[in-house]
Write a protein that binds this DNA or RNA. Structure first.
Length: 362
DNA sequence: AACTCCCGCCACCCT
DNA sequence: AGGGTGGCGGGAGTT
């Protein structure tokens, strides 16, 4: 229906050339990236589905996908109909810790490489903390047990949590989606179910990758794609290499970030606070005063350039992405950004560090 | 050809 | 009934 109209004049061709439809630009990963940039600021507390969809230029349906996965990690929490609260990155470590405990308790600690048969938790019951629990009104499942449970059992939320638990609890840190799907399917061999489950896992993997919690790689010997958990220290060092262009006293700023967990006021313009920015050359033009209502990329790492090439050679390729900032500003589009996803978490490194240290200790 | 995974139909919940 | 949610899988874009 909207395949993209090819009614163009000869001079539009070039413009269209670099504007042609690209599936990647529409990926969940990019959406999440933009989503983070939109809401990841101190002055954001609540947000609505419609608002998000409008600002990000996507249909509601997609927001549900993003939000459901983010909720599984504690970044957001449903507050009501079409209303979510923004918790932020700082809640992730806590959530992971909790997921790990839960996972171990549920038997996720066993092998995942080969078929295993731990029964995945169907209940949505989590104890203690709030971040991972469903909001109160859902808790008392007064009515239908089977129907609702069945639905929840297949939810992205649960699937995402279980997927993460596999990483947190198992000893192998490389997991293929097939393996995960099979395990989360209680070793069912049904190819149809598998296919569907894998499709979902791709969705989840995309957003987790975008959040840099996992990374796509290959299984050592083969060419078989798989995902690797980045959490903990890997993430930290990566975070630091991401902005090594100009060190400075950046970390100081974020060290305090953890303390303003409850800081919802303080509606300052982020541009002055973000260390990231110091790493790159200044990029004014975006310093407009009342910019809170519109969607901008300004304060965040522009990132760019796919981080990995086909070969799984390592080789820190996190350099030369400075000029992208300029590129970004000129290619600014109201809807989707065509940038790649990376380096979103830079300024959270400091706080994460502490949490992850705690996580590991656990 | 295999791998990805976007897109949006439509079954389910709630009001 | 009406509208918000979100499972699900066809099939198109990528590798």
């Amino acid at each position: 229906m909207e395949k993209m109209s090819w009614i163009v004049s000869s001079q539009d061709v070039d413009a269209l050339a670099l504007q042609s439809y690209s599936r990647k630009e529409k990926s969940l990963g990019v959406l999440v990236s933009n989503f983070m940039k939109l809401y990841n600021r101190d002055d954001v507390d609540l947000f609505g589905i419609d608002e998000a969809a409008a600002k990000l230029g996507v249909e509601r349906r997609r927001i549900y996908d993003v939000v459901n996965i983010l909720e599984s990690i504690g970044v957001v929490a449903r507050k009501g109909k079409s209303l979510y609260s923004w918790n932020g990155f700082v809640h992730i470590p806590r959530s992971l810790l909790q997921l790990k405990e839960e996972g171990l308790r549920e038997g996720f600690g066993l092998s995942t490489i080969c078929s295993n048969s731990h029964k995945v938790s169907h209940d949505g019951s989590d104890e203690s903390d709030d971040s991972l629990s469903l909001p109160p009104h859902d808790q008392h499942k007064s009515s239908s047990l089977s129907t609702m449970d069945h639905k929840k059992e297949r939810s992205l939320w649960l699937l995402s949590q279980n997927f993460v638990k596999m990483f947190l609890c198992s000893h192998d840190e490389i997991i293929t989606l097939d393996t995960a799907a099979k395990a989360l399917l209680n070793d069912s061999q049904d190819s149809v179910q598998m296919k569907t489950k894998v499709r979902r896992l791709y969705d989840i993997a995309n957003v987790l990758s975008s959040m840099e919690l996992i990374e796509k790689t290959h299984i050592p010997g083969t060419r078989k794609p798989a995902y690797k958990w980045l959490g903990s220290k890997s993430l930290i060092e990566k975070g630091s290499t991401l902005f090594n262009s100009t060190d400075e006293s950046k970390k100081r700023v974020f060290g305090t970030e953890i303390t303003n967990l409850s800081t919802k006021r303080n509606k300052t313009d982020c541009s002055s606070n973000y260390v990231l920015q110091t790493g790159y050359k200044k990029h004014d033009e975006e310093t407009k005063p009342a910019a809170k209502s519109c969607y901008m990329f300004g304060p965040f790492s522009p990132t760019a350039a796919s981080k990995k090439k086909k070969n799984n050679n390592v080789g820190t390729i996190y350099n030369g992405r400075l000029q992208d900032l300029e590129a970004l500003s000129s290619t600014y589009k109201p809807q989707y950004s065509n940038q790649d996803v990376t380096g979103l978490l830079g300024h959270y490194t400091g706080s994460w560090n502490k949490w992850f240290a705690e996580l590991d200790r656990k």
